[in-house]
């Protein structure tokens, strides 16, 4: 109970202040804007309610992109980490390449992928996978590097096979850091999907945001952002929950 109090209080105070500032027109007049361009939290929530089916429909599209992209990133990230763990030569050869995938600016790549793969789900999945792959692979790889060589020696004198050492020592050692990577991936995945949709799409929260921006539907635009943020928070929370259930020894 006590743990939840400070963050809840902080949010209430912030939203309350925003409500007062927006509904009295203080922000709009300070920025010299029409007041409908600065929606209050109350207006955003009523827009959330009124557009619930439209938002849900588009949120589902974006969520699917995120989940499939995250899944691809998990499979390839963990797979690559394992491969590089098994071969030191491969690790030295590929690690710099792996880092360079993060140097590629998504803003530039997204439109190119849309040109190549069209307005469908594929380019979005690829972009989500691209941004999520790195934290997962690096987390798993660092975790596997933490394996204590003395523990491996001990396991060998206790008659452990290579695969038993892997299951009983290497995987558990690597889990905490792998989960750290997965939490980062869960938090950035919605941003990846959004970039993909902004570059070209016919549905999804990003598509809705582009439209509402053009039509000055500011309250609904904020509503979309709230939904996207909720997806990110939920994914992060679920990953953290999974971590707490799996990594019980920390």
């Amino acid at each position: 109970m006590k743990r939840w109090l400070p963050p809840t209080l902080a949010i209430v105070v912030l939203v309350g202040a925003w409500q007062v500032a927006a509904s009295t027109g203080a922000i709009a007049s300070a920025l010299n804007l029409e007041s409908f361009l600065v929606p209050s939290p109350a207006e955003i929530s009523s827009s959330l309610w009124e557009n619930r089916s439209l938002l849900a429909e588009n949120a589902w599209v974006t969520l699917r992109e995120i989940l499939i992209g995250l899944g691809c990133a998990l499979v390839t990230g963990l797979g690559l980490a394992l491969l590089l763990h098994l071969s030191e030569t491969l690790r030295r050869a590929i690690y710099p390449l792996l880092v360079s995938t993060q140097a590629i600016p998504i803003v530039v790549v997204a439109p190119i992928l849309v040109v190549w793969f069209g307005y469908g789900i594929l380019p979005k999945v690829l972009i989500v996978a691209l941004v999520c792959f790195f934290p997962i692979a690096v987390g798993a790889l660092d975790g596997l590097r933490n394996v204590d060589p003395d523990t491996v020696k001990l396991m060998r004198t206790l008659d452990a096979s290579r695969s038993q050492i892997f299951h009983r020592v290497e995987i558990p050692t690597a889990l905490p850091s792998t989960f750290s990577g997965a939490k980062i991936a869960a938090a950035v995945a919605p941003i990846g999907a959004l970039f993909g949709e902004l570059a070209g799409s016919s549905s999804g929260l990003g598509h809705l945001i582009v439209q509402d921006n053009a039509q000055l539907e500011v309250a609904r635009l904020f509503a979309s952002v709230v939904v996207l943020a909720a997806i990110g928070i939920a994914l992060f929370g679920l990953t953290a929950l999974a971590e707490r259930r799996v990594v019980t020894w920390r």
């Binding site: 003395d150 523990t151 020696k153 001990l154 004198t157 206790l158 452990a160 096979s161 009983r168 019980t248």
Partner: peptide, 27 residues
């Protein structure tokens, strides 16, 4: 040979009992 290393190196993800039974499981 069974080796008891300088540090106890008990595996934190296993209970005391499962740590003790490690070799039996491996076998």
């Amino acid at each position: 040979c069974a080796y008891m290393p300088q540090r106890d190196l008990l595996l934190p993800w296993y209970s005391a009992l499962d740590n003790a039974a490690l070799a039996l499981r491996n076998q």
